[in-house]
């Protein structure tokens, strides 16, 4: 039912934790709802000089695939620029984790969490909204 990669992320989730929400270089995205069975909190810490995401943390209430999707997202976010991060698509997560069709919503939620965290960061940093870069050009 679960791919080896999902099981690995579930057993060894990467970058679990929380960053200081009040820090102006931290963007927080919280998506989902308890009554739907998934809530993801994803946070990024951006280096204001370089625009590169230095740190990413997550906490997820949800099934194994939701945990794996957000854990994977934090791995991918680290070292990317904010614009590069915006190019991460849910389908990339589906492919990487071999998610079955019933679990695609987990990857959608992870993409939403990334976007929400970046929106929050930009709002705090006063960066105008930009058009997302093309995926993996």
């Amino acid at each position: 039912m679960y791919s080896d990669k999902v099981i690995d992320h579930y057993n060894h989730p990467r970058n679990v934790g929380s960053l200081d929400k009040a820090d102006p270089t931290v963007g927080t995205g919280m998506v989902g709802a308890p009554e739907c069975g998934d809530v993801m909190k994803l946070q990024i810490k951006v280096n204001p000089e370089t625009g590169i995401i230095d740190d990413a943390k997550f906490k997820t209430f949800g099934c194994g695939s939701a945990i794996a999707s957000s854990s994977l997202a934090t791995e991918w976010l680290r070292g990317k620029t904010v614009d590069e991060a915006l190019a991460i698509k849910n389908t990339d997560i589906v492919t990487e984790l071999s998610l079955p069709p019933v679990k695609i919503h987990c990857s959608v939620l992870a993409e939403d969490a990334i976007k929400a965290a970046i929106t929050d960061y930009k709002k705090k940093a006063g960066v105008p909204e930009t058009v997302p870069a093309k995926a993996h050009a």
Partner: peptide
């Protein structure tokens, strides 16, 4: 629960029924 944002919020004393969730 270490992984759960809801448990973290509960521990911070946030009333989860009052949070504006983004239902999907």
């Amino acid at each position: 629960r270490e992984l759960s944002p809801l448990y973290e919020m509960f521990k911070e004393g946030i009333d989860l029924t009052k949070v504006q969730w983004t239902a999907h």
